[in-house]
Nucleic acid binder design. Structure first.
Lengths: 342, 342
DNA sequence: GTGAAAGCGCTAACAT
DNA sequence: ATGTTAGCGCTTTCAC
């Protein structure tokens, strides 16, 4: 099939030079002096023969694959990637673009049962890897020890020796709750996912507690609703809330998706947002401005997060930059899901 | 940095065999007879030294990278990938999973200005590529000629010599419109994106026309609204519709996202769905069941589409299967956005 | 049953 | 200013 692919040797022969010269020219090596004529000849040959370098071979010789791994947690069944969550799609787009601008391609992979992130990085000789949402520290052993350039995104309680980029979740929880308080609310519920010892949800919970404390509102455990970060749980909770004698007048949901479910569940139960219950979400994804009512929420800049993650790995690879741990700011976006009371 | 990585030679030495033997064992080659003892020794060595094969080197020698390219169109500015559209995320998840099960990794890439899909495939020695949403035939020249295993997804009017998987868009347009008709509607608008000579939107338009023709309803160009496939356009159109003297009583929107915009725009303009205007969408993504009202729409099985695309490329690669052109069915999902009238 | 060695396409140190 | 050549880590043919 497909005739022999033209390689560097072919170019060298055609242009009447050596492969070294061809290599120098292709790699635009400034430490080598080549006459314009030679360059011309070689470029002509490349053009005429339609030569495309084999990066695999180059990698073998040079030790750089120009390949970055983007490793993503898998869904419960340990199968598909979590790309149904649009956060990842947005992240990927921005990440790929940034990487491509700097000459890198992206390999994207889940992990098989008996295979670690480390194995993938090794197998494919990845120059660096970015892992989103590591929950289990065991998943990342071997990476640091083996000097694999790694950036952890949205991963809490991990080895600080690895680079990371996260957002200021705690502050996010704080400003969301403070906003509700400033709008006159005093009984404020928290709708969130599973509360691990360290993790996004726990951070946001801390921010919620901070705000309550600051304004002298007593924390009442019965107002903390913890389930899964899903539309379904939000919906269920909304239904329940609508049945309660004494529901809180406002809810801070630690994810927009949860808030969307809440809106629908509450409505189904006969309660309107924001008339009956006010709501603040977290993420500000595409949907937030398009639901009804438009959602007041804590905004994080996913694009920027991805861009920074890409720059971090690449800088570590190319400039031997040291690790850094970056925390990105969040901000409050006020829309129509909070009502002033009192 | 990082001590020399252990390679096959190290294993061979440690186990007291040759690299050939190690290679045979790693690749579980049934055409080679190796004694269990030897296998044991080698596996021990692999274990002890923590050996991970270098797939790049393997590729150079074997001509198979076990790498599949997933190439995605970029946004207008020719920059970021279109992953903000959750369709792609869903596709990717399913595609990656299916590929991984069969031992392949995914390289994901947009194209740079002076770089073709073909170049990427060559550079990275991809075993095969899947391209989603090719609009310009020029983008895929070179692929067929050079025998690169290619599967085109959701691409119309392309070279039939390449494998492809699409859905039955025309029928989708038909059943959507027919449903509206069966619910008593006689003035039915079409909200769609840009109508190219061949493409998804055009196919769906044809289905719309088919249905009108079948039921003897005259096609009226003033009811065909063509803009961009975006929430924004839907919103705008909804606003306009609400101003019209004589708006259609129902709309078939060729994408859910358009329908969502419409719902909000109409509402803002004072018209309710489905009370004032009925609506059928297309896609049935995550959102459709969660908007208010829940959207009646044409369902396509993205998961399955991705799975089939993966199987197609891999079968072509491994079994030298011939090309095939697959068209997947669509179905109508009735929810709450259509009202029976008349 | 196992091994020696050539070669995949490239880079880079060293010659010239 | 350009060429020679030894690897990079693996597969595979052919010998033994």
């Amino acid at each position: 099939m497909a005739m022999k692919r033209t390689n560097m040797k072919d170019i060298a022969k055609k242009a009447g030079v050596s492969t070294a010269t061809v290599s120098y020219i292709i790699n635009k090596r400034t430490d080598q002096v080549i006459t314009p004529q030679t360059i011309q000849k070689v470029e002509d040959a490349i053009q005429r023969l339609g030569y495309v370098p084999n990066l695999g071979a180059r990698a073998l010789a040079s030790k750089h694959t120009k390949l970055l791994g983007l490793l993503i947690p898998q869904t419960e069944e340990k199968k598909k990637l979590m790309f149904s969550n649009s956060f990842y799609g947005e992240f990927l787009s921005s990440f790929e673009y940034e990487a491509r601008k700097r000459g890198y391609n992206i390999l994207i992979s889940g992990t098989d049962v008996d295979e670690s992130y480390f194995d993938i990085a090794r197998k494919r000789s990845l120059d660096g890897i970015v892992i989103v949402g590591v929950e289990d520290e065991a998943d990342i052993v071997g990476l640091k020890k083996n000097g694999i350039h790694t950036v952890l995104v949205d991963s809490y309680g991990m080895d600080k020796e690895l680079s990371s980029v996260t957002i200021d979740d705690r502050n996010g929880g704080f400003i969301a709750t403070e906003h509700l308080i400033s709008m006159g609310h005093r009984t404020i519920g928290l709708a969130t996912g599973y509360l691990t010892k360290e993790g996004v949800n726990t951070e946001r919970l801390k921010g919620y507690e901070d705000a309550l404390a600051k304004y002298g509102i007593e924390l009442d455990g019965k107002y903390v609703y913890s389930g899964t970060v899903s539309y379904e749980y939000g919906f269920e909770l909304g239904l329940e809330l609508a049945q309660m004698q004494d529901p809180p007048s406002a809810i801070f949901a630690t994810a927009d998706i949860l808030a969307f479910g809440l809106i629908k569940g509450l409505k189904q139960g006969g309660l309107m947002v924001p008339d009956d219950i006010s709501l603040v979400g977290f993420d500000d994804g595409f949907l937030a401005s398009n639901t009804d009512p438009a959602l007041s929420t804590v905004r994080q800049d996913v694009d920027n997060k991805a861009k920074i993650a890409a720059r971090l790995v690449i800088d570590m690879i190319e400039n031997q930059e040291d690790r850094s741990n970056i925390v990105l700011p969040v901000s409050l976006v006020e829309r129509d899901s909070v009502r002033k009371i009192g």
